[in-house]
């Protein structure tokens, strides 16, 4: 049983950046905004957190600023797609390019530098000793935070009025507007939440998981997160399943290496799996009923 617990422990850690980014994108899409810029926001979050932690020695400050820069980038998308009603696909692509470009500019002197601090795992007493389940309680503080976020974001989305408003914005913004609620405000809010969480996910990647800065280290995780939103049928709870599954695929890559399978071929695994997951999710029989928010990518005009 021990190896299962160990494997699960690693899967959770490897899946955490994906989980954070997916949670954020769920909020953006639930409000009707498709943000394809996750990859860029993650990259900028990663480089910011790494740089700040390196300079100040304070990872908390690094995480905070990564979250903020994620927000800042998301602002660009929010302005383009909400305020001036641009095509969300193009705007998201622009954001991804911009984010990757900024990360490579900002990180040009950080490559190969080790961090002065490491974020350690803090096992929860007693709970972490339980077989299998214990894997969830032998993690670092950021991962614990992500559990709280999953529950909190789920609760807000499905059990509060704010959640109803967010979902209604993604389904029929006209009705929200007619109810006297500012659709733009809600959509801005959700897009910014998406940016903040993508930034945090990137920060986890560079400060906790790897921990180092390599140009292009996000390696498509932002895009995988967007696919996971569909897989999770826009529900924060289900996002954990997809994220940890892909965390597992990442672990699998390293586990299969000693068997003599070529490394570049193993690297294709998460990308192939993403396509498979998307195909499965889009061929579901009841796609229409549990499908994408009806107003996703449609600009709202007062």
């Amino acid at each position: 049983m021990e190896w299962v617990t160990d494997l699960l422990t690693m899967m959770i850690s490897a899946g955490t950046p994906l989980l954070l980014a997916t949670l954020g994108e769920i909020y953006a899409e639930r409000s009707g905004i498709l943000n394809l810029g996750v990859e860029g926001m993650m990259a900028v979050g990663a480089v910011t957190a790494f740089g700040i932690t390196l300079v100040t020695g304070n990872p908390l400050l690094g995480f905070l600023l990564a979250t903020l820069t994620g927000c800042l980038l998301a602002c660009v998308h929010a302005f383009l797609s909400i305020s001036i009603r641009s095509n969300q696909v193009i705007s998201g692509l622009a954001l991804s390019m911009l984010g990757l470009g900024i990360s490579s500019l900002a990180g040009r002197r950080l490559i190969g530098t080790p961090l002065p601090v490491t974020i350690r795992k803090i096992p929860v007493p007693l709970l972490s000793d339980i077989p299998v389940i214990g894997a969830f309680f032998n993690q670092d503080p950021v991962t614990y935070t992500s559990y709280v976020l999953v529950v909190l974001l789920w609760f807000i989305l499905f059990k509060t009025k704010l959640g109803v408003i967010i979902r209604a914005c993604g389904e029929n913004p006209q009705a929200v507007h007619a109810a006297g609620i500012d659709v733009y405000l809600i959509r801005y809010l959700c897009t910014l939440i998406g940016g903040a969480l993508a930034g945090l996910g990137g920060a986890y990647l560079s400060v906790v998981y790897t921990p180092t800065w390599i140009e292009g280290m996000t390696a498509g995780q932002g895009w995988i997160a967007i696919a996971l939103v569909i897989f999770a049928v826009w529900n924060p709870i289900y996002a954990t399943v997809g994220a940890y599954l892909f965390g597992g695929i990442r672990i699998l890559q390293y586990r299969l290496q000693p068997l003599g399978i070529s490394v570049p071929l193993l690297k294709t695994l998460p990308y192939v799996c993403t396509i498979v997951v998307l195909v499965v999710a889009s061929s579901g029989k009841f796609r229409k009923r549990i499908g994408a928010p009806a107003a996703l990518t449609i600009p709202f005009e007062k």
Binding site: L80, I84, I90, S91, M97, L98, L100, E215
Partner: peptide, 22 residues
């Protein structure tokens, strides 16, 4: 500078194109 910097231009040009179209 890393070549990736070109991506900054790519991204901003697209964003500005959307704005000017509006």
């Amino acid at each position: 500078l890393p070549f990736g910097v070109v991506n900054i231009f790519n991204g901003i040009i697209l964003a500005c194109l959307l704005t000017s179209e509006f």
